[in-house]
Design a protein around this nucleic acid. Structure first.
Lengths: 142, 142
DNA sequence: TTGTATGCAAATTGTTTGCAGTATA
DNA sequence: TATACTGCAAACAATTTGCATACAA
């Protein structure tokens, strides 16, 4: 997985720096979808000299290449990042802790939407996020 | 519509100030969903002394009362506000100009999602936004 | 009169940018 | 060696907050 991305970067004429490797590595191995800050914190355990700006720069690069997606957590001005899957999917987002998980369910029918939207509107995509509380946060609430 | 909201504010012990009336009025009469700044600009035509902070404070108040919703435009760090409808609906968001419109279509089946999410997750709601380009922006693109 | 709301300015948060030095290819 | 990348610090934009004053009830 990480090697495939590294190769894509090479093909694009990008240089492969330790920072870049580290960022991709964290995205591939984190046990949840991390925020930019969480990626940095993790990298700092090995290399405290990496800057948050480098993380953002590379996240933006990876987004522009389409290899990662960002998911926003409502009411928290917070964005988490995930390695792009092959298959279309959506997310379950916890309003308590902000954690996001994949959900393999998509009831969206583009042609149905096109009908409601009218012919002038060019549909590019959609985002569906399910909000609620994860088991951990439900337990903590009482 | 605006009177109903004013009454809700009264019931809550809030004071009815000209600024508050103006904000609600703009939300009720704007021809699209405005950003905080657009609300302010509009109010400034009549009263240039209102502050943007007042707009934000009142939008937050109205959100907490559930009478307005905010819709975020991806990739633009931009939020637009709409008076809450009675009936459940979603939005068509233009990636070009950021304008949002209602879409009376919702294929989401909560019990279906609950099945995929697992029993521990408490579903509170969902957000579905359809992204694309409105007729105006499609025309401008060429 | 009393407390809530406002306006101002400063603070905050998340993110981006300019620049000079550094390191990859 | 040449160019893309990095770290630093400063710049930004959107939103929030502290505080003294003003105004609705």
């Amino acid at each position: 997985m990480t090697e495939k991305i590294i190769q894509m970067l090479r093909d694009r004429g990008c240089k492969i720096t330790p920072q870049r490797r580290a960022i991709i590595q964290v995205l591939a191995s984190f046990d949840k979808f991390p925020t930019a800050q969480e990626i940095l914190d993790h990298i700092h355990q090995k290399d405290p000299d990496v800057g948050l700006d480098t993380v953002y720069r590379n996240l933006n690069l990876l987004i522009s290449m389409g290899v990662i997606n960002q998911i926003s957590v409502p009411g928290k001005d917070l964005k988490v990042f995930e390695l792009a899957h092959d298959k279309h999917h959506h997310h379950l987002v916890c309003l308590g802790c902000g954690e996001a998980n994949c959900l393999n369910y998509c009831p969206i029918d583009d042609s149905e939407i096109q009908k409601s939207a009218g012919p002038g509107f060019k549909i590019v995509g959609h985002s569906l996020e399910i909000y609620g509380y994860c088991p951990k946060c439900r337990a903590a609430a009482r």
